[in-house]
Design a protein around this nucleic acid. Structure first.
Length: 493
RNA sequence: GGUCGAUUCGUCUAGGGGUCUAGGACACCGCCCUUUCACGGCGGCGACACGGGUUCAAAUCCCGUAUCGACUACCA
């Protein structure tokens, strides 16, 4: 039997980190076992589901590289099948009509109401309509609205072997006769999930640990339906630094995948980072390609304890998890150039820094330049920001850099244009030759190489930091180097 | 309130009775390299939640406590 797993988000917001990680683990497991990775949109809550959200989730999955192997299933299309399943259970006496009027509780009070109700420690089988005769129930149904509940046995327990948490048990009297169908005929989550998973022939359910109690309920539905439940693997949660579940409402954009795409993260880097949140290959290797991840992924190596996604609000340097940033930088500076190129291109295009020559006539120059500047970049954004002076004459001068590198030696105002004149006459405009020339120039002026070079750095790149200055000369070429050294712009600032 | 689960450096984690004066990564700090900043190299700081047992021996097994989390809906 081939493995079939599904990622089943409800479209009530963008794809967030926790969901993305669930999708990743499902994807890795499917690939590892040679099975299928499916996608189901759980849009049964019409009031909260939006198309916009579905689009955004799809976009996020696509960015991460997880395309479903079969057509996407929209749960709302299956409502009739869900109702049919309930009708069957009702006919078989495995479910019953509950004529209790629906309690109206405002959304924001729901949590409190649940806790209050639970405190009463009531008998879960005390529903007065549970044992109504078929005749009475049928008759009442003619005139009164009703919900349909699953009839759970008075004693016993559900148990299953979770791939991550081991044997899990739950006593029946901890579970109420859960509602399958609302009084308006609308199928509820647990019912819908089970029906769809059966229809999709799902073999393994890999989802967040917050579904642990749902799994027990769902097993009861499987049993009532006479079906074999799939294997379960519950994932530890991803928490915010305050140890609360990551949520859009509390933690904001930091949880959205689009934030990372827009901030210049590489999908392969973020995937790698995500994989290490709650899973480990038990070795010291941390940088892993998708192939390695697939190869090494085992459900048994998933952790049982929650992981914290670390970030500091309002701290630009640590705005998101340091390790994610580091990993992104690591990928940027070590990945094959031909893989980096197509990622940088859209970034430069968006910043209006792209020239088509970079794809043909100037391809070699472009590659060399990327290779030079990528060494100290963290995100794709850096190519258009810090790297701007390599692709355009229109770049800003960093004020601190001017003060630090130019302010300390007043003679630079004279020397740098002089150096321009010297460089104009250099035939072989390459690193080693330039080094000789600049060295000689410095000796003649009685100054240190660093003083001159760092001064030049500001004129040529607008910044106080960056690659080796001689490499910058070579990369920019004689014409631009000379022009920028002669430019008076910075001195007039 | 109840049920279930978890607890190793700030964070991600290795370790599942002796090899642990607890290993790695990120972050932080220092030194080296160096025209700057990075990278890299070297080093530093830094953890077994607590209390009882079991055992010759406990981070590892058991029991309590604490803390955290999830769930507890005619939401998903």
């Amino acid at each position: 039997m081939t493995t079939r797993v599904r990622f089943a988000p409800s479209p009530t917001g963008y794809l967030h980190i926790g969901s993305a990680r669930t999708a990743l683990f499902n994807y890795l497991y499917a690939r590892h076992t040679g099975g299928k990775f499916l996608l189901r949109i759980e849009d049964t809550d019409l009031a909260r589901s939006t198309e916009e959200s579905t689009r955004s989730i799809l976009e996020g999955l696509k960015w991460l590289g997880f395309e479903p192997d079969e057509e996407i299933v929209f749960q709302s299309n299956n409502a009739d099948k869900h109702r049919a399943a309930v009708a069957k259970l009702l006919a078989e006496g495995k479910a019953y009509r509950d004529f209790t009027p629906k309690a109206e509780t405002a959304d924001k009070n729901v949590k409190a109401a649940i806790v209050e109700r639970a405190k009463e420690n009531q008998d879960m089988r005390a529903n007065p309509f549970r044992d109504l005769s078929k005749e009475e129930s049928d008759e009442k149904a003619q005139t009164e609205p009703f919900a349909i509940r699953l009839k759970i046995a008075k004693s016993g327990k559900t148990s299953f072997q979770d791939a991550v948490y081991g044997l899990l048990e739950r006593d029946y009297n901890e579970i109420e006769d859960l509602v399958l169908l609302r009084s308006d005929g609308h199928p509820l989550y647990n019912l819908a999930v089970v029906c769809d998973d059966i229809e999709m022939e799902i073999t393994h359910i890999i989802r967040g640990q917050d579904h642990l109690t749902n799994s027990h309920k769902q097993i009861l539905i499987y049993e009532a339906l006479g079906k074999e439940p799939p294997k379960f693997a519950h994932l530890p949660l991803i928490l915010a630094p305050d140890k609360k579940k990551l949520s859009k409402r509390i933690h904001g954009e930091i949880v959205a995948m689009t934030t990372y795409r827009d901030a210049g993260f590489l999908p392969e880097a973020f995937r790698n980072f995500l994989a290490l949140l709650g899973w480990s290959n038990k070795t010291e290797q941390e940088i892993m390609s998708l192939e390695e991840l697939i190869d090494q992924f085992e459900l048994e190596n998933i952790h049982r304890s929650n992981a914290v996604f670390n970030f500091e609000k309002d701290n630009p340097k640590h705005w998101t998890d340091d390790k994610a940033i580091w990993m992104n930088a690591e990928y940027i500076r070590t990945m094959p150039l031909e893989e980096l190129l197509p990622l940088v291109k859209p970034e430069l295009k968006a910043a209006k820094l792209w020239r088509d020559e970079y794809d043909d006539d100037d391809k070699e120059w472009f590659e060399n330049t990327l290779n030079l500047i990528r060494q100290r970049f963290f995100t794709l954004k850096d190519f258009s920001a810090q790297g701007r002076a390599f692709f355009s004459e229109d770049f800003d001068f960093d004020k601190a850099a001017i003060e630090k590198n130019l302010g300390k030696e007043p003679n630079l105002k004279i020397w740098l244009p002089e150096l321009a004149v010297v460089l104009e006459n250099v035939e072989d405009f390459t690193h080693d030759t330039l080094q000789e020339v600049v060295k000689e120039f410095c000796e003649a002026k009685g100054t240190k190489l660093g003083v001159l070079l760092n001064g030049a750095r500001v004129l040529l790149t607008g910044q106080g930091v960056g690659p080796s200055m001689l490499a910058i000369f070579e990369t920019l070429g004689k014409e631009k180097s000379v022009m920028r050294l002669k430019s008076q712009i910075v001195w007039n600032l």
